[in-house]
Design a protein around this nucleic acid. Structure first.
Length: 792
DNA sequence: GTTGGCGTATTTTTT
DNA sequence: ATACGCCAAC
């Protein structure tokens, strides 16, 4: 597994002096790179070379003799970024860079806890629970406390607890602060949840940050050691740090204050998982002596794209003032593409992709298609696959999240950490070996009463009352088998152990029972896992233990996986695209309710975050940028028509072009549509039969420029206009009930008062409107009964 | 104890 | 539309 090699094999570089290291940087970058001592705040716009500045700064510190490699701590946002930074510093100064600590917050402190955790009662073999494991544990607890997991899902409980944890609010304090039913329930399970983790010698993602804080606070001498060790601290993507990370940075840099943070408040997109934009906004206040450097020159994008980015972010009220500029060419115009449906959108993208390759000499790997939600990848995939355009998806389920891999990993975890009840539960009856839920419950309950872990209970299975002899035997056999694995772990290489587990626990066999292509893939994945384990333990750069391997892989993201250098189009969420750049970028699904997402539309803060996400997406592009939206989209299994995103309408028309090359006139277009002939959906079988009534919107005009006929017609789902079929009844409904209502309109309701239509769903007598009412919030109403009156 | 069917909620984004 | 949890039958 390549991502574990600490240092890539590179030819030694000729010696460089410090001036050489700075020479490739512009003035502002040089200032930031050479400001060795004291706090530094680098405010860096997109494409301004902030990572480059950071690497050169580190190289400069080392080459100038200011710092020894082990005194450098650099925190990156992803493991991949860490790898790249290590690589780049090595390229600059060669062997002088060996021994730096570069990694994400989570991996860095996981490593630290492996060394120091025993001071707070953890062995170095602790398990790391990902959100999957965590939800499993919470489901268990919700059950125990008779909380209905349907009403209060493990997922929502986890996000509440997680939110509390990364604000450093403990269980008892949270219980005091909790308001409302959900928080009260979360408060109930918070404490037991922590106890459960503790007893299992396990930590969740939040603990990886909290435990070091706890450790440092309880053991000042340890903190002192690390303060002394890491003399120069760097944090990238500082705008996305949460409170716990903020505290860690503060603790570690107290005393020397050699803390250099880099970020862009306009690119803060992780508030939903606790990131606190206040960290970067108040850096200057926390460290009054801090030097602030702005990197405002953009090297990535064309003038057109930089201007667009500027216009996007102007829609937000709060931000650090800065002015992006570029010396690059004006570049091509940014094109807005309207599609009838998501399918149509996907086809248009696919055609553009091929056009870019054929006519503009762009390679597939220089193209990215970005979307708001993972679910949107599907239609785009289909359309690319149909035309044999190679693509890769980043995100979704990463290798180590796949079920078969997690099963195997759970066995390994249990081998190194027998206290891990979560993993035990996961594997005790997979593959099925006659230990059903009931027997499991008996075992776990007895263990709880006796105050021992389930693993110990397994040893004393004869004492557990109520078990059938069959279950008892099965448990004993399981225990014996695991004992065997644990013995092997002492003597055999990790890869061999993994292989034995796959064979003897029956994991491979389980996947041979049915000969489906999926199972074949799963078996191949398991094989890959074996070689990953082998590589890890064979790698002299990672002389660590098996538990280290298990811990590191639970922190890997799909985006971290080693470079795929094939020539493929990249599909990913805008979140995943952070920090990347492509010659051509498609930002898709620009529709109200999708982007911005409906949940965010009512909260100004969240809306601003969505807008920053748009900013991030658009600024990934170097030269070609396409913004697309569809007028209808599948959601919840039915077609819903939507309206174009407000983000598009906020932009002035001269920045954008339609596909036909005309200026994109934003405002009027949207208004006219909502007042007139709009609200069609592609799949609406009556689309082409509807009396147009003379209201020919600009959208009609757009269609005449389309070289291909609309997708719906070509697929034959909608008969042509010539075939005026009966089925008139539904048209009547349509005309009576909904023809004059469309998303975007202001309406009045007898009881709910004034509101705005967010979307119209379905047609005929089933037509519903999603309306956001000023007084009561979002409601879904049947048009037949609602009697909405248009106002305004 | 296991399997299958049915009903239900579910869609943000992720270290 | 799909996935997952729960319940009933084997």
């Amino acid at each position: 597994m390549k991502q574990y090699s600490l240092l890539p094999a590179l030819d030694a570089q000729p010696e460089l002096n410090t001036a050489d290291i700075l020479s490739g940087l512009n003035e502002a970058q040089q200032e930031a790179a050479a400001a060795a001592d004291g706090p530094v705040l680098i405010i860096a716009g997109p494409g301004s070379g902030k990572t480059r500045t950071l690497t050169h700064r580190i190289a400069y510190l080392l080459a100038s003799g200011k710092a020894r490699p082990h005194q450098i701590l650099a925190i990156t946002f992803t493991n991949k970024a860490a790898r790249e930074m290590r690589h780049r510093v090595y390229e600059l100064i060669g062997d002088q860079s060996k021994g730096m600590t570069i990694g994400t917050f989570h991996s860095t402190f996981a490593r630290l806890l492996r060394k120091e955790g025993k001071q707070i009662g953890y062995t170095s073999d602790f398990s790391i629970y990902d959100s999957d494991d965590t939800k499993r544990a919470l489901r268990q607890l919700l059950n125990e406390y008779n909380i209905d997991p349907k009403q209060f899902s493990p997922r929502s409980m986890y996000s509440l607890i997680s939110g509390a944890k990364n604000r450093l609010i403990g269980a008892s304090e949270y219980a005091r602060l909790a308001v409302g039913p959900a928080q009260e329930k979360a408060a109930k399970v918070y404490g037991p949840y922590q106890d459960l983790l503790r007893a299992s010698n396990a930590m969740d993602f939040d603990d990886l940050l909290l435990k070091p804080i706890e450790l440092f606070r309880n053991h000042p001498e340890t903190l002192e050691r690390y303060r002394f060790l890491w003399q120069y601290i760097h944090i990238d993507e500082y705008q996305d740090t949460n409170h716990a990370q903020y505290i860690l940075a503060k603790l570690l840099s107290d005393g020397h204050h050699n803390l250099c943070v880099v970020g862009d408040d306009a690119q803060s997109i992780y508030a939903f998982r606790g990131a606190d934009i206040g960290n970067i906004l108040s850096f200057q206040r926390d460290y009054p002596e801090a030097r602030t450097v702005r990197l405002e020159q953009n090297y990535r994008s064309s003038k057109a794209i930089v201007a667009l980015a500027d216009a996007i972010i102007k829609g937000n009220s709060k931000q650090i003032e800065k002015e992006l500029w570029t010396e690059n060419d004006q570049g091509d115009p940014i094109i807005v593409m309207e599609a009838l449906s998501e399918r149509d959108e996907a086809q248009k993208i696919e055609r553009r992709v091929r056009d870019l390759c054929l006519r503009h000499g762009i390679r597939y790997r220089d193209i990215a298609v970005l979307y708001r939600t993972n679910a949107q990848s599907r239609s785009i995939e289909e359309s690319l696959r149909r035309e044999d355009v190679p693509y890769r998806i980043v995100g979704g389920v990463s290798f180590y999240q796949r079920k078969e891999i997690k099963d195997a990993i759970s066995y390994m975890r249990l081998v190194v950490n027998p206290y891990d009840d979560g993993s035990l539960r996961r594997v005790i009856n997979y593959p099925t070996r006659g230990i059903g839920n009931k027997s499991q419950d008996l075992l776990f309950q007895w263990a709880k009463g006796a105050g021992v872990t389930a693993w110990e209970a397994l040893e004393r299975v004869s004492e557990v009352p109520g078990l059938s002899s069959r279950a008892r035997n099965a448990m004993a056999r399981f225990r014996t088998m695991m004992d065997g694995f644990m013995g092997k772990a002492e003597t055999e290489p990790a890869g061999d152990l993994m292989r034995s587990i796959l064979n003897e626990a029956g994991l491979t066999h389980e996947l041979m029972r049915e000969h489906t292509p999926e199972n074949l893939v799963r078996r191949e994945n398991l094989e890959e896992l074996v070689s990953a384990v082998r590589e890890f333990s064979d790698n002299p750069d990672t002389p660590d233990t098996l538990s280290a391997f298990l811990q590191e892989v639970s922190l890997l993201t799909d985006a971290d996986s080693g470079g795929d250098f094939d020539d493929k189009v990249t599909l990913m969420t805008m979140h995943a695209s952070k920090g990347l750049e492509y010659k051509a970028v498609f930002v898709t699904g620009l529709e109200e309710g999708l982007f911005p997402l409906s949940g965010a539309m009512q909260d100004p803060e969240e809306l601003e975050e969505e807008r920053r996400l748009f900013y991030v997406g658009a600024t990934r592009a170097e030269r070609y940028l396409y913004l697309t939206y569809a007028r209808s989209r599948y959601r919840y299994g039915e077609h819903q028509s939507g309206i174009r995103s407000r983000f598009l309408d906020e932009l002035s028309g001269d920045l954008l072009r339609t596909e036909a090359g005309e200026p994109f006139s934003s405002k009027q277009d949207r208004l006219q549509r909502s007042s007139g002939s709009g609200n069609y959906t592609e799949m609406d079988p009556f689309y082409y039969r509807r009396p147009l009534g003379g209201t020919k919107g600009p959208s009609e005009k757009g269609r005449t420029h389309n070289t291909k006929p609309p997708a719906a017609r070509r697929q034959g789902t909608a008969p042509g206009p010539s075939k005026a079929e009966p089925a008139g009844r539904r048209i009547v409904y349509d005309a009576e009930e909904s023809a004059d209502l469309a998303a975007g309109m202001r309406v009045e309701h007898g009881t709910f008062g004034e509101g705005k239509i967010i979307a119209i769903e379905g047609n005929g007598p089933q037509a519903k409107a999603v309306v956001f009412f000023k007084e009561v919030g979002e409601k879904k109403l049947m048009l037949r009964f609602a009697h909405l009156q248009r106002i305004g």
